[in-house]
């Protein structure tokens, strides 16, 4: 029996760190001196995926820029739970203006830094899916189109969670929200609606677009690092489960995020100047049912009489992603 080359240590590189790994191979999150850009005491719900994703992304960006970073934030959970006047959890220069203008505020900051000759200070704009795909979309598209030197990060929890779980253009089909109730002939959000902002960002042919997940920290940090090596407009779309809005158990946040990736529903890829350059292979392929079943927003699909047709339609979306993004290629 041929020996497999020693590729992974005891737990491979899937864990946050590992005592047996060289420091350089561990994540930023494994470092005792990480920035904790989003500090303790914030008011996010138990097991909040967005709070986790924001710290992951900003700690990585802080390390990549040697702590020379300013962030502009859209209205949304991330702003509300982190900064109830007069307290703040942010340990970086941080600015909030309106729901829809985070991209424009960041453009302004970048322009001001340019005028002041502070080219080493980098700018991030961030928001939830509501502030990005709906309300801030025009500002975002403008920032892309002008190729402003900003990294925009969207934390996608697939609805307006802060105001009570209303549908956004990132809400997946069949999901129950306050505005798409599980009632009638086609319960939940309609099929054939919504938009895919990473693909729209690619259509602007900006230097860098990527999707990431809180369930894959190594991949997420690598993408943030790469984005910080590039100047011009960049976009990272991070999938962050919301225990409250999705009706999943707070301790299942990463499991749910992992199943979204492994089912093919949330493909992880990156693109440069409009072309896909890499995608992450599925490690343990899972049926969409495994993902859906953990969330009460899809509970109307199950129960005594499972809605097989709808589940099959969702599976078809996952299968299409797997094919389109080459998630199973050798």
């Amino acid at each position: 029996m041929p020996l497999q080359p020693i590729k992974f240590y005891q737990t491979g590189t899937f864990t946050v760190g590992n005592r047996l790994l060289d420091e350089s191979q561990r994540t930023v999150q494994a470092n005792m001196r990480r920035t904790n850009s989003l500090n303790s005491g914030h008011r996010a719900c138990q097991g909040c995926g967005e709070a986790l994703g924001a710290r992951y992304a900003l700690d990585a960006a802080m390390q990549a820029t040697k702590n020379r970073l300013i962030a502009a934030n859209a209205t949304g959970c991330l702003e509300v739970f982190s900064t109830p006047y007069p307290e703040t959890s942010w340990q970086i220069p941080w600015m909030h203006s309106l729901f829809g203008n985070a991209a424009s505020v960041a453009t302004g900051i970048a322009a001001a830094l340019k005028v002041k000759g502070k080219q080493d200070v980098r700018v991030i704009a961030q928001g939830g899916d509501g502030g990005t795909t709906d309300i801030g979309f025009a500002c975002l598209s403008g920032m892309f189109e002008r190729n402003d030197d900003v990294l925009y990060i969207c934390y996608d929890n697939e609805a307006y969670m802060n105001t009570g779980v209303q549908r956004s253009s990132a809400t997946p089909p069949a999901a129950r929200t306050a505005t798409t109730p599980a009632a009638g002939a086609h319960p939940g959000n309609s099929f054939g609606t919504g938009k895919n902002v990473p693909l729209i960002a690619m259509a602007h042919r900006i230097p860098f677009v990527a999707t990431a997940s809180v369930a894959n920290l190594h991949d997420l940090e690598a993408k943030v690092n790469k984005a910080m090596t590039i100047h011009g407009a960049r976009y990272i779309h991070i999938h962050v489960p919301c225990p409250l809005g999705w009706g999943s158990h707070p301790s299942d946040t990463l499991k749910v995020a992992r199943l979204a990736v492994e089912s093919g529903l949330f493909p992880l890829f990156e693109a440069e100047h409009g072309e896909i350059t890499a995608s992450l292979r599925l490690r343990k392929k899972a049926p969409v049912e495994a993902y859906l079943k953990l969330q009460r927003r899809f509970s109307h699909l199950f129960g005594e009489k499972p809605d097989r047709d709808t589940i099959a339609m969702i599976q078809a979306i996952a299968d299409r992603n797997i094919e389109k993004f080459g998630l199973e290629s050798p």
Binding site: Y9, Q10, T11, T15, V16, G17, N18, R19, L20, R26, T27, Q29, A30, N36, L38, N39, S40, H42, A44, G47, C48, G49, A51, L52, R55, L217, T253, L254
Partner: peptide
């Protein structure tokens, strides 16, 4: 190194990393 270290911490930093509240 194939040992899973069942039931005993081997300092993989997962708990340190995944806590949304530091």
């Amino acid at each position: 190194r194939r040992c899973l270290s069942c039931g005993n911490c081997f300092e993989c930093d997962n708990c340190f990393g995944v806590c949304p509240d530091n």
